[in-house]
């Protein structure tokens, strides 16, 4: 009996300490994460104008959304970004990680070079790429002219703007994913490769039959995070395309449209509804990926 109470008391003290320790973090999360999430769901059911004056709107924001052609175009653009950026980023990151895991000369230098875009300020990156793509003075057009092509206003043209943004995004995202995959590859036991060598398997066969299957848990993580971040693409567009650009409607993503509604048109209720839709899409996609992972992810 006495023993029992002592344990409970001890446990209580432990719990108190435990909760006390995570309290600052929980307070921060609650204030800056859970509350805003609640607020977005709530605001999506209200008309929220300037100075947060709000009135009940029911599902009006959602019905407006389904009739809003700009919204659908932004969603279409976002899916295009996803189709281009996700496979490119993942495949390039995987190939680079495999190459930089071999014993090549200057391996560390390459690793640093590929990781640099991740630690560089995105504003600086956007500035440089804007100059590369510049229609009058850009390096890209200079090269195009040398090869006898027609120069373009890459960032103002409806046909090229989305591709340009995608290229910059891939360039920015590859380094980070490469490092994660590199860590995954290094966790693969060398026994497998030694066995494969003995059996006479070549490097490419080793990569396809050993590296890829065994790195799938890491790959799964990379795919999930890339899908989420690509569907939330915003900063590159915001920094590379001037607000009043003829190409804006061809480059605008859902988050960009959300931002403009919330902060340019003071339509925070409608903006919240857009955020909720994007949240639902991302959640469904992630759940779907969780489901099908059994088919391709190997945990040993």
């Amino acid at each position: 009996m006495t023993v029992k109470t002592r344990i409970t008391r001890q446990k209580r003290v432990d719990w108190a300490w435990g909760y006390g320790m995570i309290l600052p973090l929980l307070a921060g999360l609650g204030l800056f994460y859970f509350y805003p999430v609640y607020k977005v769901f709530r605001d999506s059911l209200y008309t929220v104008g300037a100075f947060n004056r709000s009135s009940w709107a029911g599902l009006a924001n959602y019905t407006k959304m389904f009739q809003d052609s700009v919204m659908w175009r932004s969603l279409g653009n976002t899916l295009m970004y996803a189709v281009i950026i996700i496979p490119l980023t993942v495949v390039l990151a995987l190939i680079l990680a495999a190459l930089l895991n071999t014993r090549i000369r200057g391996r560390d230098v390459y690793r640093v070079i590929y990781f640099i875009p991740t630690v560089t300020m995105s504003v600086a990156i956007a500035m440089v790429w804007r100059w590369i793509f510049n229609g009058d003075f850009g390096i890209l057009n200079h090269i195009v002219r040398i090869f006898g092509g027609t120069p373009q206003y890459w960032l103002s043209d409806e046909h090229t703007v989305l591709l340009c943004i995608s290229i910059v995004s891939v360039w920015m995202g590859v380094g980070y994913n490469m490092i994660i995959l590199l860590a995954g590859i290094q966790g693969i036991s060398s026994n497998y490769y030694e066995a494969a060598e003995l059996e006479g398997a070549g490097k490419i066969r080793q990569f396809l039959k050993i590296t890829i299957p065994l790195v799938t848990p890491t790959l799964f993580f990379v795919v999930i995070t890339t899908v989420i971040s690509t569907l939330q693409i915003f900063d590159v567009i915001y920094m590379m395309i001037p607000t009043k650009s003829i190409a804006m409607s061809y480059a605008q993503s859902v988050v960009m449209y959300f931002y403009r509604n919330a902060f340019e048109y003071s339509a925070k209720g409608y903006a919240s509804a857009i955020a909720v839709l994007l949240f639902a899409i991302i959640m469904l996609l992630t759940l779907f990926q969780m489901r099908i992972q059994k088919k391709w992810v190997h945990y040993d």
Binding site: G135, L155, S156, I246
Partner: peptide, 9 residues
């Protein structure tokens, strides 16, 4: 200069 040119510069 074209609209696109003046947009970029």
């Amino acid at each position: 200069p074209s609209e696109k040119s003046l947009e970029e510069n």
